[in-house]
Design a protein around this nucleic acid. Sequence first.
DNA 1: GTAGGGTTAG
Length: 713
Amino acid sequence: MIISGAVHPSITTNLLKSLADPDIVDLSYALAVFRRIPRPSNFQWNTIIRACSRNQVPQESVALYREMCREGVTPDVYTFQFLFKACSQCSSIREGQTVHGNFLKLFDGSDIFARNSLIHMYSELGHIEVARRIFDGMDQKNVVSWTMMVGCYAKIGCMDEARSLFDQMPERNVVSWTSMIASYVQIHQFEEAVGFFKKMVSSNIKPDVVAMVSVLSACSHLRELDLGKWVHHFVSKERIGMTRHLAVALIDMYAKCGDMDAARQVFDSMGSKVLVAWNAIIDGYCKLGKLDVACSLFDQMGDRDLVTFNSMITGYVQNSSFKDAFLLFSELWHSGLKPDNFMIVSLLSACANLGALYQGKMLHAYIEQSSAEPDVFVGTALVDMYAKCGLIGEAKQVFNIMPNKDVLAWTVMISGLALHGDGKSALDHFLLMREEGIRPNRVTYVAVLSACSHSGLVEEGYFHFNEMVSIFNIEPQIEHYGCMVDLLGRSGYLKDAERLIQSMPVEPNAVIWGSLLGSCRVYNDVELAEKAAKNLLVLEPQKDAIYILLYNIYNSTGRWSSAVELRGMMEGCGIRKLAGCSTIVIEGIVHEFIAGDRSHPQFDEIQTMMSAMATRLKLAGHVPRISQVSLDIDEEEKENILFNHSEKMAIAFGILKLGKNIPIHILKNLRVCRDCHSAIKLIAKIWNREIVVRDRSRFHHFRQGQCSCGDFW
DNA sequence: GTAGGGTTAG
């Protein structure tokens, strides 16, 4: 509707009044009406000033206030109330102080509403002390004054202060309680949030929609399905109108608790589905691995935003569908949307999983030139990516310049160092972290103990394992026992490892038995290996590695008949050895080598290089460890098979294609065999190359005839 | 006429 001509004053006032209603406000229309008023009244000025602040154009409110003063209209307390609100939205303390000064010139400041608005303004502008002074100076305070002062402290995470004020309140209403609940949610103290909600209900304060939305968010994080259901039930019982906020909170709660049927019911019952609701339900399906359902919803929806894409991409990454993740990312890129920190983190995690250094570096470059400020999530994801892609030095560099390192950032750095066999540096970082006053958690201890196990630090391992319990009260989980079994076993204390398994309060899982079996292979302990394999086969009857390890142990210890028998069993069960596969990336292109495979287009060239490698290795005194090959074939053939292991092919290709100063990075799907390990040490020396191999459990840095793992892996 | 609320990441 366009306003033309003069309008009767009473009509404009009523129009403005209705326009001030937050649900039907249409600012441009309201302004058009306002501008048609010849001499606006005090009330009309107030209405339009409030409308501007409600519509997120607080600067306009301040401008209108100035105009009002110029026109000679005297502002009243209401004017100032709306102005204080506008100033808090402008986030300009200067503006706020000026308006506050103007207010004091006209009024003595005893008006409780105006004072409350001032408390709110100073709180929003981050000047808590001023807010507190105003609060303390009030002769009369109402429940809103108290609630806002509580909110002041809560907003900046000073929950002790907030709580002590809350306890002193003469009376509390639903907003006071919700303020506490929402603040605990914001600082991730979800148990406290739930506790306050329960206390509120038992104090006979009836929760309203906002209180329920707040507590539902806590339920989502805590997977508190029962309380979540109670809230939902309460909504129907009390006939509380379902708002969009509430519906989304319910969908999210059900989705996070894994009850997708209930989530879907709420979603389907929504009249007009807001984007946030779509995002919440899609994320739920992604998290449960139901990517097909998520994908079909994704296709059905109209508008999508970054959150939608982020949920889908993260879903793909966490289900190891890395290709789909990158495909969707390119769709997003071409649609003109720019990735935010959330998406960069998910993509970096994909790169870390894939060992995709090239793409990881591209993302790093993107972060550096992008205007978005990298946060602790991005920093940690970068550290993790570099560590898992073999560049531990780069990982350290990124870590060192990170400003606010939290416990996870430290943990990722420590586990990166562990992965690269630098146990000493990992433990140094652990000490530094504690000096910074950061409390380690369970995951940190997994990293610390695995650092000990990857570097053979038995004493240190015991020390930290004990401290974890005695100082930090962390009950050892199966992962911690796994690290300890690994540490003891690999260091040759097989009996102690076995004893630890027997004394654990938890049932040993496949990781524990697998680790023990691996250690038995190193020390060729047949008896214990058989015990471990027997337990393992109950848990993972189809796993090829169990048979292979035991088979190798039989071979190495000359138990040929047992070996033959085992092979028969394998064949009988239809179990085949997973083929060794190594990849190397050259100029962004992934080259894949499978043991014995001749399909690479440059195979002849590679073959020539491999022969040269074999000759020079022999000259350097390398004796192939043919006991690693378990086939009934002659010695020369065994040597050939060893020499066609995928990592050797990939390295040959790397030497051919990469400049002398560029480290050769190889990714392998299995563990490096002993023969390859000693061969690669020599290759690194003979060709004077740095070779980095990421195998299934760790990194090996080969340099000058040595490996960073100290032959302990 | 002043106060509290929903979706994504390491």
